[in-house]
Amino acid sequence: MAVVTLYLVATATFILMHAVPGNPLQQEKAMSAVIRQNLEEKYGLNKPLLQQYTTYMSNMFLKADFGISFKQVNRPVNKIIAEHFMPSATLGVMALFGALVFGVILGVFAALNRNGIPDMFAMVLAVLGVSIPSFCLAYFLQHIFALQLGILPVGGWGGFAETLLPAMSLGMIVMASMARLMRSSMLEVVQQDYMKTAKAKGLSRLQIILKHQIRNAVLPVMIYFGPLFATITTGSFVIESIFGIPGLGQFFVNAVNELDYTVIMGLTVFYSGFTILIILVNDLLLAVVDPRIRLA
């Protein structure tokens, strides 16, 4: 199923890409007919579109070869992905799982102190979190933590400290919505009969909260988690450029602007594949948390 989706995404991207007027060679300076002919031959642009399509698809799906970039001369797309994927992935995963952990904690914290000061504090934070664009937040965080307080680096990539600010800016929206979902889910679970049963059995408050309330409440939250991954990947380009992170985002935006066919295709398929993978992992996690779900 996943492969079919990937194939269809690749086909749709291929069609969209070739629907744009121009081709990657045309945008360069005027070149002689011979050079153009040679270049077209090298990249296979002189062949009919259908043949280009079949060659490309078979290379991609059978040999996992995304071809070479048009603009970064002779650089294989596979290499671009291999070199620049780690920063993006680290950032995305840190942002998402940080958001999940802190969002759940915040939501639990708010629900347990319902209508109290902690609840109000957590919900104000959650509502503010969904209201501030990630790029604004990035600048504010950078200014406060890096320039004013000087406790975290302004940008760059390398150690753990560098990942904190970008992950925070990227994950804020997710964290805020997680916290809100978790809170309402917790409050819904409290009213269930099995909570009364647990209390009647004489379980301690901590046991009830950990084993019965949180475990049941986290399920609906997790269902929303997979699709949120898409939000993260779109936002990452700006965050990567603000903090100077050598991630994949910049390559994608530049490639689309320059109509670098192979890079667009490679990154699109790669991103989609990664998203599908994350959703799959999320489903597996869901099965771990909820024994009622049987893995087919």
């Binding site: 744009v20 779109t234 602007n257 699109t268």
Partner: peptide
Amino acid sequence: MRITDIVATVPELLVIIILQVV
């Protein structure tokens, strides 16, 4: 629904940029 699946997975940026070019 399969059509919406595909539309949802095609990168937004690509669609937007293509529309802007056209």
